[in-house]
Design a protein around this nucleic acid. Sequence first.
DNA 1: TACGATATTTAGACTAATCTAAAAATAATA
DNA 2: TATTATTTTTAGATTAGTCTAAATATCGTA
Lengths: 222, 222
Amino acid sequence: MRSMLSQTEENYLKAVYKISESDPGPVSTNAIAKIMHTSAASVTDMIKRLSEKNYVDYKKYYGVELTQMGKNSATLLIRKHRLWETFLVNQLKFSWEEVHDIAEQLEHIQSDQLIERLDEYLNYPKFDPHGDPIPSTDGKFTIRNQTALSDMQIGDQGQVIGVKIHDTPFLQHLNKIGIKINTAVEIIAKQEYDQSTTVIINQNDQVLLSEKVATKILLKKI
Amino acid sequence: MRSMLSQTEENYLKAVYKISESDPGPVSTNAIAKIMHTSAASVTDMIKRLSEKNYVDYKKYYGVELTQMGKNSATLLIRKHRLWETFLVNQLKFSWEEVHDIAEQLEHIQSDQLIERLDEYLNYPKFDPHGDPIPSTDGKFTIRNQTALSDMQIGDQGQVIGVKIHDTPFLQHLNKIGIKINTAVEIIAKQEYDQSTTVIINQNDQVLLSEKVATKILLKKI
DNA sequence: TACGATATTTAGACTAATCTAAAAATAATA
DNA sequence: TATTATTTTTAGATTAGTCTAAATATCGTA
Ligand SMILES: [Mn+2]
Ligand SMILES: [Mn+2]
Ligand SMILES: [Mn+2]
Ligand SMILES: [Mn+2]
């Protein structure tokens, strides 16, 4: 049943998926337009097309939801994106802030065999360089406990396992202060006034994290 | 000066490059149409566009030739194609007849850094899995002496270093008879009647090669 | 519950890339 | 050289994806 989707159609499906991930229920035209950097009119056009092809359920003025087929396509796209990011970082030695845009292109390469070989080559990774889970062929994500650094208490210890956003300036900032995946973190103080957090990383350096940064770092408690 | 070319535009440039490679001089509209599997009318349209952007020189009813800029783009595309094919065969363990179609997609990924990292990762290969030279960043191809198997004499010995065509049925046929890159070949007989050649491969198996096959296998004489 | 603000859809237009059919130019040949 | 055959270009249409502007529906709140 999986007809040939254009890259654009795939990107719309992924946008709908991402929006309903953080905000379940029907997705608004405007929300899609924002992510896709297009006009609401273009979104309406495209949604009609995807609805026609049964990738989404669509009710005028109400919103759009992925069908099972739409979910499958979106999940496969995310699988490809994250496997390619893993390849770029683990094999080609790119830094985690450099890989997203390249993976945005690579995720559209059409070859089931390629993605399965890549998965094998990378030794079946479960998480990508940003700590995001890589769905399996049948669309299952590995779940794990994670806590935002901003939600930890004084004295708590943890290990960085992911970040909530992936834009380059944020990741470069983390590079600068020495935080990356697997970094050990201990909370030693929290300022009431601005919600900033003081931490010790790798049992060594003391770092002050603003609330803006602390809310976006995900830890595994230890 | 390298503006953004669409995938389609890149493919047209590559087509012009490939045609003038085997047949120097101006390239005909029909020749391009054949390779691109489009109508002559579509080719005329596209050639006008590429001419407008200075990737080709074009004179109505006469033919088309790549400008230096067009040659650079075509060569870069070929570099990317062949590096990706090398990756697919050497790292992901694809067979040589499986990689062309995937590389046709991968060659359009836009990232100079990616292709340089890939080159390094693969240890700067000079030839792809079909024995075709991989141009360097500045567009230079490694030249080497090669002789078609059909042009060898009885008693000559050689080693397979390439093939003239890359379609799957031909490569699968070579797989079946046990010929691949680096296979040692000795010519032991030639039939006047049908120009077929009898060879011994890897000092072991005797194989009869039709003219159709023998003309497409490239050897290094030893 | 009405009315202004906001969100969404429709209408109409544009570009890239394609097609078919017809016209025009060039090449082949009688 | 005249006539036919082939090649190439033009004309006009189509589809995907986009836009802006206008129309319409829904929401928020007085
Ligand atoms: Mn990403
Ligand atoms: Mn990621
Ligand atoms: Mn190839
Ligand atoms: Mn090749």
